[in-house]
């Protein structure tokens, strides 16, 4: 399964995408030699931090370093993933590791992309519970175990952006196609037995672009660091939209 076992790596050739739009006309790749302790299988984020010790001017986002905050979505040797939970043994090929920003979004600096478009699409789907029933605020809205199970695989999204920025449909129409992350979120609320706005949500998604630009390429599924399946959620929305149109 692993391209290379951890013990074979000694000095890693790391290549990092660098770009400061205020200072440089064009982005370039900067190379580093990083010494890796033989017995340790470091994560990609660890080697980025080691590179930053050599050159403190490298910029990248990071926070939890355990795969739950979604800060460090990166393009790692050509594949989107989280730096903090991608081990070198999975990522490194021929002792080379090349790290670029998530594709398709404007670069602010180095590995930092402007997430505005991504967040705007997220906000469009009204990512919050809507309920027209009178809620007794002194208790929980009842939900059965089976109803709650329908949210598994949906609510765990960490908004890292790996999926949407791996999606050709999102690259072409980032303003009109909502992208896998926002659509997963849309379905998370459609699927919630406590939410009563399904009709309103579907109506909003019914144009040619919002959902239907998804062509089932499934890049989103192959890169999701949480193992979620946005394509499936999008399929469910499509089914509901088709059913509704009949």
């Amino acid at each position: 399964m692993n391209a290379i076992s951890a013990s074979e790596i000694k000095t890693l050739r790391l290549s990092i995408y660098r770009y400061d739009p205020l200072k440089e006309e064009k982005p370039y790749m900067q190379d580093f030699d990083i010494d890796i302790p033989a017995e340790k299988d470091l994560m990609v984020l660890d080697v980025l931090m080691l590179a930053k010790e050599q050159d403190p001017s490298i910029s990248f986002r990071r926070s939890c370093r355990e795969g739950v905050c979604g800060s460090d979505g990166l393009n790692i040797n050509g594949k989107n993933g989280l730096g903090c939970i991608t081990p070198l043994s999975d990522a490194v090929k021929s002792n080379k590791l090349s790290i670029r920003p998530l594709p398709g979004l404007p670069v602010i600096k180095d590995l930092i992309v402007d997430m505005k478009q991504f967040v705007d699409q997220y906000k469009k789907v009204k990512p919050y519970l809507i309920t027209d029933k009178k809620v007794d605020t002194r208790k929980a809205i009842p939900q059965t175990i089976e109803e709650r199970e329908k949210l598994d695989g949906l609510y765990e999204c960490i908004m890292c952006g790996c999926c949407s920025t791996a999606c050709p449909s999102f690259w072409w129409n980032p303003d009109k196609f909502l992208g896998p992350a926002a659509l997963l979120q849309a379905y998370r609320f459609i699927a919630d037995s406590r939410d009563t706005a399904t009709e309103e949500r579907l109506e909003q998604l019914e144009d040619a672009f919002s959902v239907f630009r998804c062509h089932g390429i499934m890049n989103c599924v192959s890169v999701c660091p949480k193992g979620l399946n946005p394509t499936k959620a999008i399929g469910e929305i499509k089914k509901m939209l088709v059913k509704r149109a009949l």
Binding site: C64, V68, C69, M115
Partner: peptide, 11 residues
């Protein structure tokens, strides 16, 4: 200093 959902409560 981080986008709100990157805060440590998430852990």
């Amino acid at each position: 200093k981080v986008f709100p959902t990157r805060s440590h409560t998430v852990s």
